[in-house]
Design a protein around this nucleic acid. Sequence first.
DNA 1: AATGTCGTCAACCGCCAGAAT
DNA 2: AATTCTGGCGGTTGACGACAT
Length: 448
Amino acid sequence: MRNPTTTTTTTRGGGGSSTTSSMVGKSSRYMKNNNNNNNNNNNNNKNSNSKMTPCCSKVGLKRGPWTPEEDEVLANYIKKEGEGRWRTLPKRAGLLRCGKSCRLRWMNYLRPSVKRGHIAPDEEDLILRLHRLLGNRWSLIAGRIPGRTDNEIKNYWNTHLSKKLISQGIDPRTHKPLLNSPDSSSPPHPRHHPHDTKPSSSSKPMMINATQPPPTPSPNPNHSTPSNLTDDQQPDNDIPADFLQINNNNNNSNIIHKEKENENENTFFFHATIVANNDDHDHYPIQTPDGIGIGTATPALVHHIHPYHPNFPSSSDHDEHHCSPSNINHAQLPGNDDDINYCPDDVFSSFLNSLINDDAFAAQAQHQLLLQHPHPNPNPDPTPTSAPPALSDPNLISTSATATATAPTTTYALPTTTWDSSLLSSTTTTFNHNHPNSTIDDDHHQME
DNA sequence: AATGTCGTCAACCGCCAGAAT
DNA sequence: AATTCTGGCGGTTGACGACAT
Protein backbone atom coordinates (compact mmCIF):
# COMPACT_ATOMS: atom_id res chain seq x y z
CA MET A 1 0.00 0.00 0.00
CA ARG A 2 1.33 3.32 -0.88
CA ASN A 3 2.28 5.70 1.73
CA PRO A 4 -0.11 8.60 1.91
CA THR A 5 2.36 10.59 3.87
CA THR A 6 4.60 10.97 0.91
CA THR A 7 2.45 13.85 -0.18
CA THR A 8 2.41 15.65 3.03
CA THR A 9 2.05 19.00 1.46
CA THR A 10 0.73 17.85 -1.82
CA THR A 11 -2.74 16.60 -1.49
CA ARG A 12 -3.75 13.69 -3.53
CA GLY A 13 -6.89 13.08 -5.35
CA GLY A 14 -9.35 15.76 -4.67
CA GLY A 15 -6.88 17.57 -2.57
CA GLY A 16 -4.19 19.05 -4.73
CA SER A 17 -3.18 22.27 -3.20
CA SER A 18 0.43 22.69 -2.59
CA THR A 19 2.04 21.84 -5.84
CA THR A 20 1.34 23.34 -9.14
CA SER A 21 1.82 20.03 -10.80
CA SER A 22 -0.91 18.60 -8.71
CA MET A 23 -3.32 20.68 -10.63
CA VAL A 24 -2.33 19.43 -14.01
CA GLY A 25 -4.18 16.21 -13.93
CA LYS A 26 -7.21 17.57 -12.26
CA SER A 27 -8.70 19.63 -14.97
CA SER A 28 -11.58 17.25 -15.27
CA ARG A 29 -12.57 17.89 -11.76
CA TYR A 30 -12.27 21.59 -12.23
CA MET A 31 -14.33 21.44 -15.35
CA LYS A 32 -16.89 19.43 -13.53
CA ASN A 33 -16.93 21.81 -10.68
CA ASN A 34 -17.14 24.80 -12.89
CA ASN A 35 -20.01 23.20 -14.62
CA ASN A 36 -21.59 22.77 -11.31
CA ASN A 37 -21.40 26.41 -10.79
CA ASN A 38 -22.47 27.53 -14.16
CA ASN A 39 -25.01 25.05 -15.28
CA ASN A 40 -28.28 23.94 -13.92
CA ASN A 41 -27.14 20.55 -12.92
CA ASN A 42 -28.31 18.70 -9.92
CA ASN A 43 -26.16 20.59 -7.56
CA ASN A 44 -27.42 23.87 -8.74
CA ASN A 45 -30.90 22.66 -8.48
CA LYS A 46 -30.11 21.93 -4.90
CA ASN A 47 -28.54 25.27 -4.56
CA SER A 48 -31.66 26.94 -5.68
CA ASN A 49 -33.43 25.62 -2.67
CA SER A 50 -34.26 28.21 -0.13
CA LYS A 51 -32.21 26.39 2.44
CA MET A 52 -29.03 26.92 0.58
CA THR A 53 -26.89 29.49 2.17
CA PRO A 54 -26.13 32.50 0.01
CA CYS A 55 -22.45 31.87 -0.14
CA CYS A 56 -22.97 28.48 -1.64
CA SER A 57 -25.51 29.56 -4.17
CA LYS A 58 -23.40 32.32 -5.61
CA VAL A 59 -22.18 31.56 -9.02
CA GLY A 60 -18.71 32.35 -10.09
CA LEU A 61 -17.08 31.12 -6.97
CA LYS A 62 -14.28 28.72 -7.39
CA ARG A 63 -14.58 25.22 -6.12
CA GLY A 64 -12.46 22.14 -5.97
CA PRO A 65 -8.89 21.80 -4.89
CA TRP A 66 -7.12 24.83 -3.62
CA THR A 67 -4.13 26.18 -5.43
CA PRO A 68 -0.96 27.13 -3.61
CA GLU A 69 -1.69 30.73 -4.47
CA GLU A 70 -5.06 30.56 -2.84
CA ASP A 71 -3.57 28.90 0.18
CA GLU A 72 -1.06 31.65 0.49
CA VAL A 73 -3.65 34.36 0.18
CA LEU A 74 -5.84 32.76 2.76
CA ALA A 75 -3.05 32.02 5.20
CA ASN A 76 -1.63 35.48 4.92
CA TYR A 77 -4.97 37.06 5.42
CA ILE A 78 -5.77 35.04 8.50
CA LYS A 79 -2.36 35.74 9.92
CA LYS A 80 -3.08 39.41 9.64
CA GLU A 81 -6.75 39.56 10.42
CA GLY A 82 -7.37 36.40 12.35
CA GLU A 83 -10.01 33.77 11.95
CA GLY A 84 -13.69 34.36 11.88
CA ARG A 85 -16.27 36.13 9.81
CA TRP A 86 -15.87 33.45 7.25
CA ARG A 87 -18.65 34.60 5.05
CA THR A 88 -17.07 37.91 4.31
CA LEU A 89 -13.53 36.69 4.55
CA PRO A 90 -13.17 35.59 0.94
CA LYS A 91 -14.18 38.96 -0.35
CA ARG A 92 -11.95 40.77 2.07
CA ALA A 93 -9.07 38.49 1.28
CA GLY A 94 -9.67 38.60 -2.42
CA LEU A 95 -10.54 34.97 -2.85
CA LEU A 96 -13.15 33.60 -5.16
CA ARG A 97 -14.26 31.04 -2.65
CA CYS A 98 -17.20 30.74 -0.38
CA GLY A 99 -16.63 31.27 3.28
CA LYS A 100 -17.28 27.71 4.12
CA SER A 101 -14.63 26.56 1.76
CA CYS A 102 -12.16 29.00 3.26
CA ARG A 103 -12.93 27.89 6.74
CA LEU A 104 -12.59 24.27 5.82
CA ARG A 105 -9.33 24.84 4.08
CA TRP A 106 -7.94 26.70 7.03
CA MET A 107 -9.19 24.32 9.64
CA ASN A 108 -8.19 21.14 7.91
CA TYR A 109 -5.03 22.11 6.15
CA LEU A 110 -3.55 25.52 6.61
CA ARG A 111 -3.85 25.99 10.31
CA PRO A 112 -0.37 25.85 11.81
CA SER A 113 -1.43 23.49 14.52
CA VAL A 114 -2.60 20.90 12.09
CA LYS A 115 -0.42 17.87 12.29
CA ARG A 116 -0.29 15.98 9.10
CA GLY A 117 1.02 12.63 8.16
CA HIS A 118 1.02 9.20 9.60
CA ILE A 119 -1.21 8.57 12.54
CA ALA A 120 0.84 7.06 15.30
CA PRO A 121 -0.20 3.91 17.09
CA ASP A 122 -1.02 5.79 20.24
CA GLU A 123 -3.17 8.16 18.28
CA GLU A 124 -4.87 5.25 16.68
CA ASP A 125 -5.49 3.71 20.02
CA LEU A 126 -6.94 6.93 21.25
CA ILE A 127 -9.22 7.19 18.27
CA LEU A 128 -10.46 3.70 18.85
CA ARG A 129 -11.16 4.31 22.45
CA LEU A 130 -12.81 7.61 21.89
CA HIS A 131 -14.90 6.25 19.10
CA ARG A 132 -16.09 3.53 21.33
CA LEU A 133 -17.19 6.15 23.75
CA LEU A 134 -18.43 8.81 21.42
CA GLY A 135 -19.38 7.15 18.21
CA ASN A 136 -19.01 9.19 15.09
CA ARG A 137 -18.51 12.40 16.95
CA TRP A 138 -15.48 13.23 14.96
CA SER A 139 -15.07 16.74 16.18
CA LEU A 140 -15.13 15.61 19.76
CA ILE A 141 -12.65 12.91 19.01
CA ALA A 142 -10.45 15.30 17.14
CA GLY A 143 -10.59 17.68 20.02
CA ARG A 144 -8.83 15.08 22.11
CA ILE A 145 -6.09 14.39 19.64
CA PRO A 146 -3.82 17.37 19.25
CA GLY A 147 -3.14 18.43 15.73
CA ARG A 148 -5.65 16.15 14.13
CA THR A 149 -8.76 17.34 12.42
CA ASP A 150 -12.13 15.78 12.47
CA ASN A 151 -11.94 15.25 8.77
CA GLU A 152 -8.66 13.45 9.04
CA ILE A 153 -9.86 11.24 11.82
CA LYS A 154 -13.05 10.50 10.02
CA ASN A 155 -11.17 9.52 6.92
CA TYR A 156 -8.72 7.46 8.86
CA TRP A 157 -11.52 5.69 10.58
CA ASN A 158 -13.35 4.91 7.41
CA THR A 159 -10.32 3.78 5.51
CA HIS A 160 -8.32 2.06 8.19
CA LEU A 161 -9.79 1.50 11.55
CA SER A 162 -13.23 0.32 10.61
CA LYS A 163 -11.67 -2.26 8.36
CA LYS A 164 -9.22 -3.22 10.99
CA LEU A 165 -12.00 -3.83 13.44
CA ILE A 166 -14.01 -5.76 10.93
CA SER A 167 -11.05 -7.91 10.15
CA GLN A 168 -10.91 -8.76 13.81
CA GLY A 169 -14.57 -9.58 13.92
CA ILE A 170 -15.55 -6.40 15.63
CA ASP A 171 -18.37 -4.19 14.60
CA PRO A 172 -16.80 -0.78 14.12
CA ARG A 173 -19.98 0.96 15.04
CA THR A 174 -20.59 -0.71 18.34
CA HIS A 175 -17.18 -2.10 19.04
CA LYS A 176 -18.87 -5.32 19.78
CA PRO A 177 -18.22 -8.58 18.07
CA LEU A 178 -19.71 -9.08 14.71
CA LEU A 179 -22.04 -11.97 14.78
CA ASN A 180 -23.03 -14.78 12.52
CA SER A 181 -26.51 -14.78 13.87
CA PRO A 182 -29.41 -14.24 11.48
CA ASP A 183 -29.74 -10.76 12.81
CA SER A 184 -26.45 -9.92 11.31
CA SER A 185 -27.98 -10.02 7.90
CA SER A 186 -29.70 -6.80 8.66
CA PRO A 187 -27.77 -3.61 8.94
CA PRO A 188 -25.90 -3.95 12.14
CA HIS A 189 -26.68 -0.54 13.38
CA PRO A 190 -29.37 1.28 11.59
CA ARG A 191 -28.99 4.88 12.23
CA HIS A 192 -31.64 6.43 14.28
CA HIS A 193 -31.71 9.51 12.30
CA PRO A 194 -34.86 11.44 11.66
CA HIS A 195 -33.72 12.44 8.24
CA ASP A 196 -32.71 9.03 7.12
CA THR A 197 -34.34 8.70 3.83
CA LYS A 198 -31.30 7.31 2.20
CA PRO A 199 -28.84 4.72 3.24
CA SER A 200 -26.54 5.91 5.87
CA SER A 201 -22.86 5.55 5.65
CA SER A 202 -23.14 2.38 7.60
CA SER A 203 -24.76 0.77 4.65
CA LYS A 204 -21.84 1.51 2.47
CA PRO A 205 -19.51 -1.35 1.92
CA MET A 206 -16.66 0.76 3.03
CA MET A 207 -18.10 0.92 6.48
CA ILE A 208 -19.67 -2.40 7.17
CA ASN A 209 -20.83 -5.07 4.89
CA ALA A 210 -23.34 -6.65 7.12
CA THR A 211 -24.17 -9.33 4.67
CA GLN A 212 -20.68 -10.62 4.82
CA PRO A 213 -19.77 -10.64 8.40
CA PRO A 214 -16.35 -11.94 8.97
CA PRO A 215 -16.03 -14.84 11.28
CA THR A 216 -16.09 -13.76 14.83
CA PRO A 217 -13.04 -15.19 16.37
CA SER A 218 -12.05 -13.64 19.55
CA PRO A 219 -8.93 -11.69 18.76
CA ASN A 220 -7.41 -13.37 21.69
CA PRO A 221 -8.44 -16.83 22.69
CA ASN A 222 -8.49 -15.65 26.23
CA HIS A 223 -10.99 -13.02 25.38
CA SER A 224 -14.12 -14.76 26.09
CA THR A 225 -16.13 -11.94 27.37
CA PRO A 226 -18.94 -10.85 25.17
CA SER A 227 -17.43 -12.08 21.99
CA ASN A 228 -19.88 -14.82 21.41
CA LEU A 229 -22.93 -13.19 22.75
CA THR A 230 -25.46 -11.13 21.03
CA ASP A 231 -27.03 -8.32 22.91
CA ASP A 232 -29.92 -10.57 23.65
CA GLN A 233 -27.62 -13.22 24.86
CA GLN A 234 -25.89 -11.03 27.28
CA PRO A 235 -26.41 -12.20 30.77
CA ASP A 236 -29.24 -10.61 32.54
CA ASN A 237 -28.13 -7.84 34.65
CA ASP A 238 -29.12 -7.36 38.16
CA ILE A 239 -28.25 -3.76 38.36
CA PRO A 240 -31.17 -1.76 39.51
CA ALA A 241 -32.30 0.19 36.57
CA ASP A 242 -31.88 3.49 38.21
CA PHE A 243 -30.04 5.37 35.60
CA LEU A 244 -29.31 8.89 34.91
CA GLN A 245 -27.85 10.34 31.86
CA ILE A 246 -25.58 13.24 31.70
CA ASN A 247 -24.85 15.40 28.81
CA ASN A 248 -22.52 18.17 28.19
CA ASN A 249 -24.85 20.93 27.37
CA ASN A 250 -22.12 23.04 25.92
CA ASN A 251 -19.82 20.85 23.99
CA ASN A 252 -22.64 18.74 22.85
CA SER A 253 -25.51 21.05 22.53
CA ASN A 254 -26.15 19.39 19.27
CA ILE A 255 -26.73 16.19 21.07
CA ILE A 256 -29.15 17.63 23.49
CA HIS A 257 -31.22 19.18 20.85
CA LYS A 258 -31.28 16.14 18.74
CA GLU A 259 -32.47 14.15 21.66
CA LYS A 260 -35.19 16.59 22.32
CA GLU A 261 -36.35 16.75 18.81
CA ASN A 262 -36.68 13.08 18.47
CA GLU A 263 -36.86 11.64 21.90
CA ASN A 264 -35.17 8.33 21.97
CA GLU A 265 -34.01 8.36 18.46
CA ASN A 266 -30.99 10.01 17.09
CA THR A 267 -29.26 10.10 20.35
CA PHE A 268 -25.57 10.07 20.45
CA PHE A 269 -24.27 9.45 23.83
CA PHE A 270 -22.19 6.80 25.25
CA HIS A 271 -23.37 4.83 28.15
CA ALA A 272 -21.04 4.18 30.94
CA THR A 273 -21.53 2.84 34.35
CA ILE A 274 -19.99 4.58 37.28
CA VAL A 275 -19.57 2.30 40.19
CA ALA A 276 -21.08 3.78 43.26
CA ASN A 277 -19.65 1.55 45.90
CA ASN A 278 -16.12 2.55 45.62
CA ASP A 279 -13.60 2.78 48.36
CA ASP A 280 -11.54 5.27 46.52
CA HIS A 281 -13.63 8.36 46.73
CA ASP A 282 -11.34 10.26 44.48
CA HIS A 283 -11.79 7.98 41.52
CA TYR A 284 -14.85 6.07 40.56
CA PRO A 285 -14.51 3.29 38.06
CA ILE A 286 -16.32 3.73 34.83
CA GLN A 287 -17.39 0.88 32.66
CA THR A 288 -19.08 0.45 29.40
CA PRO A 289 -22.47 -1.18 29.23
CA ASP A 290 -20.81 -4.45 28.57
CA GLY A 291 -18.76 -4.13 31.65
CA ILE A 292 -15.49 -3.04 30.24
CA GLY A 293 -13.51 -0.70 32.35
CA ILE A 294 -12.81 2.51 30.57
CA GLY A 295 -11.37 4.73 33.19
CA THR A 296 -12.33 6.58 36.27
CA ALA A 297 -14.57 9.46 37.09
CA THR A 298 -13.78 12.24 39.43
CA PRO A 299 -16.03 13.04 42.33
CA ALA A 300 -17.07 16.17 40.52
CA LEU A 301 -18.33 14.13 37.66
CA VAL A 302 -20.21 11.60 39.64
CA HIS A 303 -21.69 14.37 41.62
CA HIS A 304 -23.00 15.80 38.43
CA ILE A 305 -24.50 12.55 37.54
CA HIS A 306 -26.14 11.93 40.82
CA PRO A 307 -25.55 14.68 43.30
CA TYR A 308 -27.80 13.35 45.97
CA HIS A 309 -27.09 9.71 45.89
CA PRO A 310 -25.72 8.48 49.21
CA ASN A 311 -23.07 6.39 47.56
CA PHE A 312 -21.72 9.28 45.61
CA PRO A 313 -20.03 12.35 46.95
CA SER A 314 -22.34 14.96 48.25
CA SER A 315 -22.53 18.37 46.79
CA SER A 316 -20.94 19.76 49.88
CA ASP A 317 -18.00 17.50 49.51
CA HIS A 318 -16.95 18.11 46.01
CA ASP A 319 -16.62 20.74 43.53
CA GLU A 320 -19.75 22.63 44.07
CA HIS A 321 -18.84 25.35 41.71
CA HIS A 322 -19.17 22.95 38.88
CA CYS A 323 -22.75 22.31 39.52
CA SER A 324 -25.38 24.65 38.48
CA PRO A 325 -28.21 24.20 40.93
CA SER A 326 -30.67 24.97 38.27
CA ASN A 327 -29.29 22.31 36.10
CA ILE A 328 -29.27 19.80 38.83
CA ASN A 329 -32.73 20.61 39.89
CA HIS A 330 -33.88 20.36 36.40
CA ALA A 331 -32.41 16.97 36.07
CA GLN A 332 -33.43 15.67 39.40
CA LEU A 333 -37.00 16.68 39.51
CA PRO A 334 -38.97 13.55 40.06
CA GLY A 335 -40.78 12.57 37.01
CA ASN A 336 -38.82 14.82 34.82
CA ASP A 337 -39.06 13.14 31.51
CA ASP A 338 -35.79 14.43 30.40
CA ASP A 339 -33.95 12.82 33.21
CA ILE A 340 -30.85 14.43 31.98
CA ASN A 341 -28.13 16.01 33.93
CA TYR A 342 -25.95 18.61 32.45
CA CYS A 343 -22.36 19.11 33.17
CA PRO A 344 -20.19 21.94 32.05
CA ASP A 345 -17.34 21.80 29.65
CA ASP A 346 -14.62 21.41 32.17
CA VAL A 347 -16.26 18.50 33.86
CA PHE A 348 -17.01 16.79 30.64
CA SER A 349 -13.52 17.48 29.50
CA SER A 350 -12.01 15.97 32.57
CA PHE A 351 -14.37 13.11 32.18
CA LEU A 352 -13.12 12.41 28.73
CA ASN A 353 -9.60 12.85 29.86
CA SER A 354 -10.15 10.26 32.46
CA LEU A 355 -11.63 7.90 29.97
CA ILE A 356 -8.83 8.17 27.53
CA ASN A 357 -6.23 7.75 30.11
CA ASP A 358 -4.22 4.72 29.45
CA ASP A 359 -2.63 4.28 32.78
CA ALA A 360 -5.86 4.59 34.56
CA PHE A 361 -7.30 2.19 32.10
CA ALA A 362 -4.66 -0.37 32.65
CA ALA A 363 -4.35 0.25 36.33
CA GLN A 364 -8.02 -0.22 36.81
CA ALA A 365 -7.83 -3.45 34.96
CA GLN A 366 -5.08 -4.65 37.17
CA HIS A 367 -6.89 -3.55 40.20
CA GLN A 368 -9.97 -5.36 39.15
CA LEU A 369 -7.89 -8.38 38.47
CA LEU A 370 -6.57 -8.27 41.97
CA LEU A 371 -9.98 -7.75 43.41
CA GLN A 372 -11.57 -10.48 41.47
CA HIS A 373 -8.71 -12.88 41.55
CA PRO A 374 -6.75 -12.29 44.68
CA HIS A 375 -5.10 -15.58 43.95
CA PRO A 376 -4.17 -15.35 40.37
CA ASN A 377 -5.75 -17.94 38.23
CA PRO A 378 -3.64 -19.00 35.33
CA ASN A 379 -6.74 -19.37 33.22
CA PRO A 380 -9.14 -16.76 34.41
CA ASP A 381 -12.53 -16.69 32.92
CA PRO A 382 -13.23 -13.07 32.32
CA THR A 383 -16.81 -13.62 31.38
CA PRO A 384 -18.97 -11.43 33.53
CA THR A 385 -21.76 -13.07 35.35
CA SER A 386 -23.83 -10.04 34.99
CA ALA A 387 -23.70 -7.13 32.75
CA PRO A 388 -24.97 -3.67 33.27
CA PRO A 389 -28.37 -3.18 31.81
CA ALA A 390 -28.31 -3.64 28.14
CA LEU A 391 -29.20 -0.60 26.22
CA SER A 392 -32.66 -0.72 24.90
CA ASP A 393 -31.19 0.39 21.68
CA PRO A 394 -27.77 -0.94 20.98
CA ASN A 395 -27.27 1.85 18.55
CA LEU A 396 -27.06 4.33 21.29
CA ILE A 397 -23.51 5.21 21.04
CA SER A 398 -23.64 8.25 23.05
CA THR A 399 -21.88 11.12 24.61
CA SER A 400 -23.62 11.08 27.85
CA ALA A 401 -22.95 8.75 30.64
CA THR A 402 -25.31 6.47 32.36
CA ALA A 403 -24.60 5.95 35.98
CA THR A 404 -25.72 3.29 38.27
CA ALA A 405 -27.23 5.24 41.03
CA THR A 406 -27.60 2.41 43.41
CA ALA A 407 -24.98 0.69 45.35
CA PRO A 408 -24.86 -2.79 43.94
CA THR A 409 -22.64 -3.13 41.05
CA THR A 410 -21.49 -5.95 38.98
CA THR A 411 -18.47 -7.89 38.21
CA TYR A 412 -16.68 -7.14 35.09
CA ALA A 413 -14.62 -8.60 32.48
CA LEU A 414 -11.12 -7.47 32.80
CA PRO A 415 -10.61 -4.68 30.42
CA THR A 416 -7.39 -6.05 29.19
CA THR A 417 -8.84 -9.40 28.51
CA THR A 418 -11.90 -8.39 26.64
CA TRP A 419 -12.46 -8.96 23.03
CA ASP A 420 -11.16 -5.67 21.84
CA SER A 421 -8.43 -5.16 24.28
CA SER A 422 -5.86 -5.96 21.72
CA LEU A 423 -6.81 -2.77 20.05
CA LEU A 424 -7.14 -0.79 23.17
CA SER A 425 -4.09 -1.70 25.03
CA SER A 426 -1.41 -1.06 22.55
CA THR A 427 -0.12 2.25 23.61
CA THR A 428 2.07 3.78 26.14
CA THR A 429 1.09 7.24 27.02
CA THR A 430 2.32 9.74 29.47
CA PHE A 431 -0.23 9.85 32.12
CA ASN A 432 0.51 11.06 35.57
CA HIS A 433 -2.59 10.21 37.35
CA ASN A 434 -1.91 9.86 41.00
CA HIS A 435 -4.70 7.50 41.66
CA PRO A 436 -5.45 5.48 38.66
CA ASN A 437 -6.64 2.65 40.74
CA SER A 438 -10.16 2.36 41.74
CA THR A 439 -12.04 -0.23 43.58
CA ILE A 440 -15.12 -2.13 42.93
CA ASP A 441 -17.45 -3.39 45.48
CA ASP A 442 -16.68 -7.02 45.16
CA ASP A 443 -19.29 -7.98 47.68
CA HIS A 444 -21.71 -8.16 44.86
CA HIS A 445 -22.05 -10.24 41.85
CA GLN A 446 -18.80 -11.97 41.82
CA MET A 447 -18.12 -13.95 38.79
CA GLU A 448 -19.33 -17.41 38.87
C1' DA B 1 0.51 -1.18 -22.60
C1' DA B 2 -4.20 -0.86 -21.60
C1' DT B 3 -7.82 -1.38 -18.61
C1' DG B 4 -10.15 -2.23 -14.30
C1' DT B 5 -10.39 -2.03 -9.34
C1' DC B 6 -9.40 -0.35 -4.96
C1' DG B 7 -7.72 2.88 -1.39
C1' DT B 8 -7.12 7.45 -0.02
C1' DC B 9 -8.51 11.90 1.40
C1' DA B 10 -9.57 16.88 0.28
C1' DA B 11 -13.53 19.07 -0.63
C1' DC B 12 -18.31 19.53 -0.80
C1' DC B 13 -23.19 19.12 0.81
C1' DG B 14 -27.00 19.51 3.79
C1' DC B 15 -28.27 20.37 8.07
C1' DC B 16 -28.22 22.27 12.66
C1' DA B 17 -27.69 25.29 16.93
C1' DG B 18 -26.70 29.45 18.75
C1' DA B 19 -25.79 34.27 18.12
C1' DA B 20 -27.06 38.43 16.21
C1' DT B 21 -30.39 41.50 14.49
C1' DA C 1 -40.63 36.66 19.25
C1' DA C 2 -39.26 35.99 14.75
C1' DT C 3 -35.92 36.05 11.37
C1' DT C 4 -31.34 36.01 9.57
C1' DC C 5 -26.60 35.10 9.98
C1' DT C 6 -22.68 32.40 11.22
C1' DG C 7 -19.90 28.68 12.43
C1' DG C 8 -19.71 24.02 12.85
C1' DC C 9 -20.70 19.09 12.22
C1' DG C 10 -21.21 14.48 10.07
C1' DG C 11 -21.91 12.19 5.80
C1' DT C 12 -20.71 11.80 1.14
C1' DT C 13 -18.41 12.50 -3.27
C1' DG C 14 -15.12 11.96 -6.68
C1' DA C 15 -10.30 12.62 -8.57
C1' DC C 16 -6.16 10.52 -8.36
C1' DG C 17 -2.50 7.08 -7.49
C1' DA C 18 -1.31 2.36 -6.79
C1' DC C 19 -2.02 -2.06 -7.79
C1' DA C 20 -4.09 -6.07 -10.24
C1' DT C 21 -5.45 -8.28 -14.34
